[in-house]
Amino acid sequence: MTTLMVQGTTSDAGKSTLVTALCRWLARQGVAVAPFKPQNMALNSAVTADGGEIGRAQAVQAQAAGLASHTDMNPVLLKPNSDTGAQVIIHGRAVTQMDAAAYHDYKRVAMQAVLESHRRLSERYQVVMVEGAGSPAE
């Protein structure tokens, strides 16, 4: 198993598009590839086959890889509902609403969800194509 990560210098740098293209190219080469965005902040979401919620970009990336979308592809989704708060969705299910300070303390729980999802994807696919969030400097 290989994990590859695409990062950009800013949000909106084209990471989603590049990961989508790489998923499609790898799938056409016969490589079992899955997209993965550990944490995403977006209002636009898509429903997975099991009724969970993930970022729309990860659903498109799954389609490019020839896969049905799955909540492991975006284990932590934050849907902003104010300037400082968001609905927290873990493994496709809304768990709570939090402000930024409370989420900072919750990150350990969120990290466990991320690690579980990455492990499961790594066991099933030859390549896990990770889309970074924002930029490494943000």
Results as ranks from 00 to 15, higher is better:
Ala57Phe: 05
Ala65Gly: 01
Asp83Pro: 00
Lys79Val: 15
Thr71Val: 15
Pro75Asp: 12
Leu78Pro: 01
Gln87Val: 15
Gly55His: 11
Leu77Gln: 04
Ala68Lys: 14
Ala62Gly: 15
Ala64Lys: 02
Ile54Glu: 01
Lys79His: 07
Arg56Trp: 07
Pro80Gln: 07
Ala57Ser: 11
Asp50Trp: 05
Pro75Glu: 13
Glu53Ser: 14
Gln63Met: 12
Asp50His: 04
Ala57Asp: 09
Gln58Asp: 07
Asp83Phe: 11
Glu53Cys: 02
Leu67His: 08
Glu53Arg: 15
Pro80Ser: 09
Ala62Tyr: 05
Ala59Ile: 09
Gly51Tyr: 11
Gly51Thr: 03
Val60Ile: 15
Ala57Cys: 13
Val47Gly: 02
Thr71Asp: 03
His70Asp: 15
Asn81Pro: 00
Ala49Leu: 14
Thr71Tyr: 11
Ser69Gly: 11
Ala65Ile: 07
Ser69Glu: 10
Ala64Phe: 04
Val76Ser: 00
Ser69Ile: 06
Gln63Pro: 00
Val47Lys: 09
Ala62Trp: 08
Gly55Thr: 08
Gln63Tyr: 05
Ser69Met: 11
Gly55Glu: 07
Lys79Asn: 01
Thr84Cys: 02
Leu67Trp: 11
Ala57Trp: 13
Val76His: 04
Gly55Asn: 07
Leu77Asp: 00
Gly52Met: 03
Ala59Pro: 06
Leu78Ala: 02
Val60Gly: 00
Met73Trp: 04
Asp72Tyr: 15
Gln63Ser: 15
Ser82Leu: 05
Gly51Ser: 07
Thr48Pro: 01
Ala65Val: 09
Ala64Thr: 00
Ala57Asn: 00
Met73Arg: 02
Met73Val: 05
Asn74Met: 14
Thr71Phe: 10
Arg56Ser: 00
Glu53Met: 14
Asp50Asn: 15
Ala65Arg: 06
Asn74Arg: 08
Val60Asn: 01
Ala59Gly: 14
Ser69Asn: 04
Gly51His: 10
Arg56Asp: 00
Glu53Ala: 08
Lys79Cys: 09
Leu78Ile: 10
Val76Lys: 02
Asn74Pro: 06
Arg56Ala: 12
Val60Thr: 13
Ala65Glu: 04
Asn81His: 07
Ala49Pro: 00
Ala49Val: 15
Asn81Lys: 03
Ala65Asp: 06
Ile54Met: 00
Gln63Asp: 11
Lys79Glu: 09
Thr84Gly: 03
Thr84Ala: 05
Gln61Gly: 04
His70Ser: 10
Asn74Trp: 13
Ala86Thr: 01
Leu78Asp: 04
Leu78Tyr: 08
Gln61His: 12
Gly66Thr: 09
Pro80Leu: 08
Asp83Ile: 11
Leu67Tyr: 13
Ala64Asn: 01
Ala65Met: 06
Arg56Gln: 06
His70Trp: 08
Ala68Cys: 10
Arg56Asn: 03
Val76Pro: 03
Ala57Pro: 02
Thr84Arg: 09
Gly52Gln: 07
Leu77Val: 03
Asp72Leu: 15
Leu78Met: 12
Leu67Pro: 04
Gln63Ile: 02
Thr48Glu: 11
Ile54Thr: 01
Leu77Phe: 08
Met73Phe: 14
Gly55Phe: 10
Leu77Ile: 04
Met73Tyr: 09
Gln87Ala: 14
Gly66Ala: 09
Asp83Leu: 14
Met73Ser: 03
Gln61Phe: 12
Ala59Thr: 05
Pro75Phe: 12
Thr48Asp: 03
Ala49Cys: 08
Gln61Glu: 14
Pro75Cys: 01
Ser69Val: 03
Pro75Thr: 08
Gln87Asn: 10
